[in-house]
Design a protein around this nucleic acid. Structure first.
Lengths: 224, 224
DNA sequence: TGTACATCAGTGAACGCGCGTTCACTGATGTAC
DNA sequence: TGTACATCAGTGAACGCGCGTTCACTGATGTAC
């Protein structure tokens, strides 16, 4: 491979970790630039960084571990996008609406990121599987990662709690976990279908989101 | 490749079309047996049928056209699953609920089929793209296929019409297209998230579905 | 009824490709004396 | 201050793999005379 742009300088001693960050950044750039999250290969990442493929293995055990690290970054960024959208909210219902819109916008702005973490076969589950296949009593350093992924879900649970608290009649309060799950899947449905079928004549996002949120709000706060 | 089981008999003259059906059936078997819809390769299909890879090209121009044919079959089967579920319904709302449950069950019973048609990069759109790249004024024999795919959607629109007709106040009748879209995406969200994250502690399907359908029904039929 | 011939379902071998991963190595950087 | 040495970021070449696709072909089946 001809190095046309030998811009990258070798890291100095003790700065080897720098490459790790560059690898993750390159992987994300490739997700954005290629229409296909499958195109993100070890070789493509290495070329983008300006390094040979084997040097990737200094920082990641294999491709799965690399993708897992990318997923962690994406989940963290999704979570913080939702949290910053929530801050402008005037009340819990408004908060849910803003978070829903932010979620959809995140997915549509970075469709291949979204595809990687929530539409493709689960990297994390696959890693756990293969790790446990090798070593049955496996004390997972990965297991903790599930937490990172569900920070956004934990925050959604908080929002749901605030909404359910608006229902004065405790006997009409829905289960917080099931409600959060239903909201997540509804918003995921909007996002992932638009990513999967971009040529479908979708209505405007707000119309779509309203048709989920307005019924949900009326139902959760129902007085009968 | 050693032919261990030379069970397949060569088709007689004029019966060449038989292989076409066997190819599609083999592709679907592979979707069911492998956990990964990417594993469905020309070579794997040929081996499963008991034939060499080049003979696939007698029936399909390339891999994309083969996958497109599989998608058509899957959509047709999904549509008929929904229609047969709808037949037992007592009223339009019950019809919607039954179709929703049938949709989810179809997806969870055939997750890789579902992944292929509704979670992976769109085969059909990709085919249209490449065909138009080659031949700018392209009179698509594929374009008609969009219809096959949306038979299920057309039928959903019918169901929605029946529900909207239950709303006595015309000024409160939601848009049929947007409503159908919202319902589709809600049910797709449940299905695809469960496929993508099988290890998540999902609530029972009926709880999940109720949390979408009950608010939607109350909203569409609202009297204020 | 027998034979030459056309048809066409399917074969066998090969192509070039990009992939993940491995291995033994190089050579600049920093450290010990 | 100078030199021998250990460290370690990154290289170069190669591995074996499965993939989609092509090409010239074979040989059983049916048809025309």
């Amino acid at each position: 491979m001809a190095r046309l742009t030998p811009t990258r300088l070798r890291a100095r001693r003790g700065e080897g970790e720098r490459l790790r960050g560059e690898i993750l950044a390159a992987a994300e750039e490739l997700l954005i630039e290629t229409a296909d999250s499958t195109a993100v290969s070890i070789r493509a990442i290495a070329e983008r960084v300006g390094v040979t493929p084997p040097s990737i293995y200094r920082h990641f055990a294999d491709k799965d571990h690399l993708l897992l690290a990318v997923c962690e970054e994406v989940f963290a960024r999704l979570d913080s996008a939702l949290e910053s959208a929530a801050q402008k909210a005037s009340d819990p219902i408004d908060e849910l609406l803003r978070k829903g819109r932010a979620y959809i916008e995140f997915g549509l702005a970075f469709p291949e990121h979204y595809r990687l973490v929530l539409m493709r076969p689960d990297v994390q589950a696959h890693l756990l599987d293969t790790a446990q296949a090798k070593d049955p009593d496996f004390d997972s350093p990965i297991a903790g990662h599930t937490m990172a992924q569900s920070n956004a879900f934990e925050h959604l649970l908080d929002t749901v709690d605030r909404i359910l608290a608006l229902q004065p009649d405790p006997s009409r309060r829905e289960d917080r976990f099931a409600t959060a799950t239903a909201i997540w899947s509804a918003v995921h449905g909007i996002t992932s279908l638009r990513i999967a079928k971009p040529q479908f004549p979708w209505p405007p996002i707000d119309v779509h989101l309203d048709l989920i949120c307005k019924p949900m709000r009326a139902y959760l706060l129902r007085q009968d």
